[in-house]
């Protein structure tokens, strides 16, 4: 019985155009089928991974409290649920915002994310400033940049008063 080595060494001597052509066909068939198999498995996985790029969560109005709960001129933290949290999200389903009441029905809701790199800004009521712990960004009470590296004012959520309730329109995390 011939070994593999012997078979391989004998093949070139017996080759003719037909066998070469057949071998080329089989090579291309194998490579092609292999690529097809990889695509059948890989494309759905890639699509699954890239899904978030094309999927947008629906926006939703979330109540954060009765109008009377907020004093004019004050800024307080409010929390609300993401529009469509996954059942296993746990505490990660929540989002916070800094809500400021400027008048009877005038509210502004600032994102808690520093516009520098997204860290959570803190409100210093006595100083009327938002300060970021990460790289020292500072914002005035109206969200404008006061100092530090932030390139633009704090982002804002849409706010409305509906049936005596202050409501915030959810939106993607305002970073980037």
């Amino acid at each position: 019985m011939a070994t593999n080595t012997e078979v391989t060494s004998q093949v070139p001597a017996q080759e003719d155009t037909a066998t070469l052509s057949r071998r080329q066909f089989l090579t291309r068939l194998s490579v092609g089928l292999g690529g097809l198999g990889a695509a059948i498995v890989g494309l759905p996985v890639i699509g699954f991974l890239l899904g978030p790029l094309f999927r947008r969560s629906p926006q939703a109005w979330r109540g954060v409290g009765a109008v009377d709960k907020f004093q004019i001129g004050q800024t307080v933290e409010v929390t609300f649920l993401d529009p469509s949290p996954l059942p296993w999200a746990g505490v990660a389903a929540g989002t916070a915002a800094w809500l400021r009441r400027d008048g009877q029905d005038q509210f502004r809701a600032f994102a808690v994310n520093c516009t520098h790199l997204g860290c959570p800004v803190r409100w210093l009521p006595d100083a009327s400033l938002f300060m970021c712990p990460c790289h020292g960004g500072v914002f005035y009470h109206d969200g404008k940049v006061a100092a530090g590296p932030p390139p633009r004012p704090l982002s804002e959520y849409e706010v409305r008063v509906n049936n005596g309730q202050v409501e915030i329109l959810t939106s993607p995390t305002p970073i980037g």
């Binding site: 978030p52 790029l53 969560s57 993401d82 996954l86 990660a92 989002t95 995390t173 980037g176």
Partner: peptide
Amino acid sequence: LVHFILAGDTVGGA
């Protein structure tokens, strides 16, 4: 890229 990293619009279950 933001959506890809967060696997959604916000930090959440995914």
